[in-house]
């Protein structure tokens, strides 16, 4: 157990295959980019320590595979997430259209206690491609969608050029944290010795 109080934030990255989830994470954590595409299989995990408002956090980043055949990993991956990052490629209409599915799938699988206010963040990636000429989803359209879904913060990023990556993850950390702030109250009972029958009845599967 860490002696200093540090908070661990679980961040899930979702989005269609090839939109650049792994690249964004790799840019953020390792400051590296590769043009080569290696499809993620299942999920990758990376951790990154961040300092924020004089506190230390560990981001536990779950980079999931966008390919459809991995979708059934579901609950296992989403459970207990502090923040969910939705990524699309501004040059691919379909990847934007699918954001809705990703968001809904996440809410169903993770079933967060307060779905209305669960912190999502949307990244429109690959803005560098072709100097923006091959772009098919406008910033306006993207922002409108985000606004309609409860004011989801939106960033236009390039994993390749490192544009807005750091900034986006700052907001991810901040929102993940905000959401976690209402801490669970941990209140154990005290044994009432008067009723001695509790002993075995209460049982213990350990």
């Amino acid at each position: 157990m860490p002696s200093r109080r540090r908070t661990l934030l679980k961040v899930i990255i979702l989005g269609d295959s090839g939109v650049g989830k792994t690249s964004l994470m790799n840019q953020y954590v390792n400051k590296k980019f590769s043009n080569q595409y290696k499809a993620t299989i299942g999920a990758d995990f990376l951790t990154k320590e961040v300092e924020f408002e004089d506190r230390l956090f560990t981001l536990q980043i779950w980079d999931t595979a966008g390919q459809e055949r991995f979708q059934s990993l579901g609950v296992a991956f989403y459970r207990g997430a502090d923040c969910c990052v939705l990524v699309y490629d501004v040059n691919v209409q379909k990847s934007f259209d699918n954001l809705n599915n990703w968001r809904e799938e996440f809410l169903i699988q993770a079933s967060p206690s307060d779905p209305e206010n669960f912190p999502f963040i949307v990244l429109g990636n690959k803005v560098d491609v072709d100097g923006g000429n091959s772009r098919v989803v406008s910033e306006k359209k993207a922002r409108a969608w985000c606004a309609a879904k409860g004011d989801i913060p939106y960033f236009e990023t390039s994993a390749k050029e490192g544009i807005n990556v750091e900034e986006a993850f700052q907001v991810i950390a901040k929102n993940a944290l905000k959401n976690g702030e209402e801490e669970e109250i941990y209140l154990p009972d005290t044994i009432d010795v008067g009723s001695t029958s509790q002993q075995r009845a209460s049982g213990c599967d350990c």
Partner: peptide, 9 residues
């Protein structure tokens, strides 16, 4: 300070 691991099928 980054460590990675992966799970796949």
């Amino acid at each position: 300070h980054a460590s990675g691991s992966r799970v796949w099928m």
